[in-house]
Amino acid sequence: MNATKDKPKRHRTPVVLFTLFFCLSGCSQDYSLAPPADSEKITVTVKLPQELKTETMWVMYRSATCKSISHGASGQRVEQDGRHSVYKEFQRQGQSDLYQVELPKDGGGACKWHLANVTFGVVHVDPAQFGENVTNGGGGGVVVIFDHNNSPRGGADIKVDGDLTIKKDYYPWIKEAFLGGYSKRISLTGEGGIYLKYRALNAQHVYFEPTLHSHFTIYSEQPKQKKEGNYTAFTYPDGTTVADGKWHPNFLRLQTIRTGRAADCFSLRRYANCPDRRPQLLPDWLPEPGKPGFGRYVIADEWGTELPSYSYRLVGADDQVFQDLSEPNGRTKLLPESAHPLRKAEFPKRVW
């Protein structure tokens, strides 16, 4: 008799435990954001040229409290941090060319959300100016990751400490496609792919300044038939056409066409090979220790790297002329303090 009474209890216990487990897994969780009033803010600012506009920003928050549960190929349970997406429009700051979004770093709520990453970018204001039925394509995108996870667009290509400032050149790219249906798009081509991806764990301010060189448009035409040896043809602003099997334009070639500078001059890794280092005199006057009344200047390139053995010609405040080669640390030879501040700094080719 007792065994009969106990039987229903043994069946009832798993049902109660299952119900409890299901609810703890989130069936009644409040997944909404509730940023505390004193949450640290992250500001994203875009400086827009006339021809471009901002796209809607995709903001992702993550939670280690509210897990996302899925199952693998073998039926195993897979837990991941929960994700919550919101979408923000950039707000113009007065009558300026600055557009801004302010985001709470602490998303709050029962799930204890934290800001994980943002995806934003710029597109052309008026695609129709490039022809009938022309639509906006890719390029001009930015992903900034604020935690140690990947973004929906993958991991970061560049890691930065502190605030993030992005200033990049872009060119209009009109591309015609024929395979799989005709389309014509105006994209932006620049350094990197469709998205520039950064990890900035400690950033409070993100600043993006795209410069569009609208008078240097590149055109591409996809082949009408798919067969070996048929490649997309790129016509550059100087009139040359290249069909080398690549899917995107050569950015450094565009930079060279526009500026006349060698491609090495636009890459930090290859900049040392650049024939034109764009020397500049750093403004600080450095008094020479142990030699009162004397000092030096530093000659550096556009990236701030000291230029050793670089020729200079300086005209002092008293019209005295000093010309020589910079030392291994980029410093000039000793100059009398009477030469400071300089009237003129020149960097002639070495002919003396």
Rank of each mutant, 00 (worst) to 15 (best):
A37L: 13
D38E: 15
E40R: 12
K41R: 15
I42P: 03
V44K: 00
V44E: 02
V44D: 03
V44H: 02
V46F: 11
L48F: 09
P49T: 04
Q50R: 12
E51S: 12
K53Y: 09
E55C: 13
T56E: 07
Y61Q: 04
R62A: 06
S63E: 03
A64D: 13
T65L: 09
C66G: 04
K67S: 01
S68K: 15
S68N: 12
S68I: 06
S70H: 08
H71N: 06
H71K: 11
H71W: 10
H71F: 14
R77D: 02
R77V: 13
V78M: 11
D81L: 08
D81T: 07
D81W: 15
G82H: 04
H84R: 15
H84T: 08
S85M: 12
S85K: 13
V86T: 13
K88N: 03
Q91K: 15
Q91Y: 03
R92Y: 10
R92L: 10
G94A: 15
L98C: 07
E102D: 11
E102P: 04
D106H: 06
G107K: 00
G107I: 01
G108Y: 02
G108W: 04
K112M: 05
W113K: 03
H114K: 12
N117H: 09
T119M: 07
T119D: 03
V123F: 04
V125I: 11
V125S: 14
P127Y: 11
N133Q: 13
G137Q: 01
G137V: 08
G138L: 08
G138A: 13
G139I: 08
G140M: 06
G141S: 06
V142A: 03
V143G: 00
V144H: 01
V144K: 00
F146H: 06
H148I: 08
N149A: 15
N150L: 07
R153T: 04
R153H: 11
G154W: 12
G154D: 08
G155Q: 10
G155Y: 08
G155I: 05
A156N: 14
I158H: 14
K159T: 15
D161W: 06
D161M: 13
G162K: 10
G162Q: 06
D163F: 06
L164T: 00
I166F: 01
I166Y: 03
K167R: 14
Y170M: 06
